[in-house]
């Protein structure tokens, strides 16, 4: 009984750093990702689409479409029939990549019966989960960055003009946002890999969420806006209200956020992502590009939104993983 207070106070403390062994986990998971067949297939797919779309875009640009400013950025956004633009493909492929990197990360350890062994080593669960996440994000960043470099190189070869500093800043910002867009899906797939014991279930659940946001959320957002803010006949203010609600709802979807960032970052003439009333355009010089910093400021909420979603999903998975019983 005399020892009770001592054990109570000390019982709350954990010895050592929660990050012990983190880099061992990151290195091993990275190596797994980079040598896995799954990743090779996805990388090949992305590189093929990048090559195809960017080649087609550069062909259009050489033919003189699209004027003579921000040629490099147009490599990403110019579509030439029958191919859509590269950013369009990225919106589809990046979630797929994020999901593929994480859907079996935790339940895979359970199914291979390696989890109890790994956790019997002198590391905390924190290090295992965070290491897996970092490795996934690292692999994602590595893939996207190399594709970015490939596109820049192809642009140099095909267009023969170097990118301006402005274009480099914009495309780097776009790269960063794309990585975190992938991070959202990575964190989601990892969360499902903690919740579901079967990797196939986790993969399907992640794909279902992705499909929901890609295909259905837009429709649902407009229906909800209609329902919540009905517009009486001849009331323009109510109409504005409704459109703004619809926009807010649509922005719950990471796809919407990503598309808007792509739009504003790669297209310097976009000055606003919301509703613009004619009165606000009074005295504005239309068609003039914004400086890169202003475009970044415009998409700042989107970027923080994506990062926040990543963190929230990871934190949720973290809590669930800490509470999981490890007797496999």
């Amino acid at each position: 009984m005399q020892q009770q207070p001592e054990t109570l106070t000390l019982g709350r403390q954990r010895e050592g750093s929660p990050w012990t062994g983190l880099w061992a986990v990151v290195a091993k998971e990275m190596a797994d990702h980079l040598t896995s067949v799954r990743m090779l297939i996805l990388e090949a797919l992305i590189i093929l689409t990048a090559a195809g779309t960017v080649y087609a875009a550069s062909q259009s640009l050489r033919d003189g479409f699209g004027g003579d400013t921000f040629l490099f950025l147009k490599l990403f956004t110019t579509a030439r029939e029958p191919l859509p633009a590269f950013v369009g493909f990225l919106g589809l492929l990046v979630p797929l990549l994020g999901i593929a990197l994480a859907f079996d990360s935790v339940n895979g350890e359970f199914n291979q019966r390696t989890i109890s062994k790994v956790l019997a080593q002198p590391i905390y669960r924190d290090a295992l989960l965070f290491g897996k996440f970092l490795a996934g994000l690292g692999a994602l960043a590595l893939t996207l960055t190399s594709i970015w470099l490939l596109i820049v190189g192809m642009g140099l070869l095909r267009l023969g003009v170097p990118p301006t500093g402005e274009e480099v800043v914009r495309s780097l910002w776009f790269l960063l946002v794309t990585i975190f867009y992938g991070g959202v899906w990575l964190a989601l797939a990892m969360l499902f890999s903690i919740v579901f014991r079967q990797p196939a279930t986790a993969a399907l659940a992640s794909l279902a969420v992705w499909l929901f946001f890609t295909a259905f959320w837009g429709i649902i957002a407009s229906l909800l806006a209609n329902l919540l803010r009905p517009v009486p006949l001849g009331d323009p203010l109510a109409l504005i209200d409704q459109v703004q609600l619809e926009l807010a709802l649509a922005r719950i979807s990471p796809n919407t956020l990503f598309t808007e960032v792509a739009l504003a970052t790669l297209n310097p003439t976009v000055r606003s992502l919301g509703l613009v009333l004619p009165i606000q355009l009074h005295n504005a010089v239309l068609g003039t590009p914004l400086p890169a910093t202003q475009s970044m400021l415009l998409t700042w909420p989107h970027a923080t939104g994506l990062i926040a979603a990543t963190i929230v999903l990871f934190a949720l998975g973290y809590v669930l993983f800490q509470r999981q019983e490890i007797r496999a």
């Binding site: 019982g11 403390q13 954990r14 010895e15 002198p122 590391i123 905390y124």
Partner: peptide, 9 residues
């Protein structure tokens, strides 16, 4: 419970 790392190593 308190010194898991030392024990597990």
């Amino acid at each position: 419970a308190r010194q898991p790392l030392s024990v597990k190593s």
